[in-house]
């Protein structure tokens, strides 16, 4: 949805990830960008250049925080120390919402630094929703959870990924960061129809969308974030925004990062799809969401 409780009733357009190779260009040239997404963990430090750059960015741009290590799906409760650091950053950035992944990644304080898939069971959904609520209550901002790309499925699962995602977000009453590239990657790795996924999630909870590139291997696809967005992913994006409306969209490009212009131009391709949805909404709002 363009503006909803899960993105704090904002109406952000197309953003890109704030990445080190672009710092100089952004600070010197001050290009027009709707918003930047930062990886929270890169700025959960005590001082130095990361925070100075962030403060300069915050003077000119809107910033949304995206995390990679909250691990809502962990069996443990969220770390209070981690939450304290995160809240300090939230106060600094004034991010309207915060996102992290629907995954697990650490056990007994030992970190994998990966976004590990979860068994899709009701018990896991309940625990995950409880963790999300705890994080939201502590941080006092809306949370959107992102579906991850995965390369393995568990025997223990008793529902599809999109049913699990829906179960979690309904129980937690939180938003969704819908990553259409991750849906595509997982659909190819696990042989499901990605449009079933898109049709099966609660669209009114989508607060943000991610698009990204991936890499095809002989037997699987890897979520590499090192390419332009491929056509099948743009088609999924088109389908997603026909359900969720003109939603804040972000391009992720994290490896082999090209020039700022190349990344931004790639992100702005989303405009052609958003424009069509916007036009359709003006003409017939009900039909546009079908």
């Amino acid at each position: 949805m363009p503006a909803n409780p899960f993105n704090n009733f904002t109406n952000y357009g197309i953003g890109i990830g704030l990445r080190i190779p672009h710092y100089h260009h952004i600070l010197e040239q001050k290009p027009v960008v709707d918003w930047f997404e930062i990886i929270s963990e890169n700025f959960m430090v005590d001082g130095g250049r990361p925070l100075e750059v962030l403060d300069q960015i915050l003077e000119q741009y809107r910033v949304v925080q995206h995390g990679v290590s909250m691990y809502f799906g962990n069996a443990d409760r969220p770390s209070r120390e981690h939450l304290k650091r995160l809240k300090t950053l939230v106060k600094r950035t004034k991010t309207p919402w915060l996102s992290d992944h629907l995954c697990w990644g650490s056990v007994d304080g030992r970190y994998t630094h990966d976004l590990l898939p979860m068994p899709y069971t009701f018990a896991v959904a309940r625990k995950t929703a409880q963790n999300i609520r705890e994080v939201r209550d502590y941080l006092e901002i809306p949370i959107c959870v992102e579906n991850v790309s995965s390369y393995a499925e568990f025997h223990a699962s008793d529902m599809t990924e999109w049913e699990f995602l829906s179960e979690v977000v309904e129980r937690a009453d939180c938003g969704i960061l819908l990553d259409v590239n991750n849906i595509y990657v997982s659909s190819r790795n696990h042989d499901f129809n990605p449009y079933d996924y898109l049709n099966g999630v609660p669209h009114h909870r989508v607060g943000q969308i991610h698009v990204a590139g991936h890499t095809k291997f002989e037997k699987y696809i890897l979520d590499t974030h090192d390419h332009p967005v491929l056509d099948p992913v743009w088609r999924l994006y088109d389908h997603a925004i026909r359900h969720s409306g003109h939603t804040a969209t972000l391009l992720e490009w994290d490896a082999h990062i090209p020039s700022f212009h190349e990344v931004h131009d790639e992100a702005l391709k989303a405009n052609q799809y958003l424009g069509e949805v916007e036009a359709a909404e003006k003409t017939d709002p009900v039909a546009a969401r079908r």
Binding site: E41, N42, V68, D223, T224, A255
Partner: peptide, 9 residues
Amino acid sequence: GEASNAVEE
């Protein structure tokens, strides 16, 4: 560099 959730090729 950046912490990233993407997989390096």
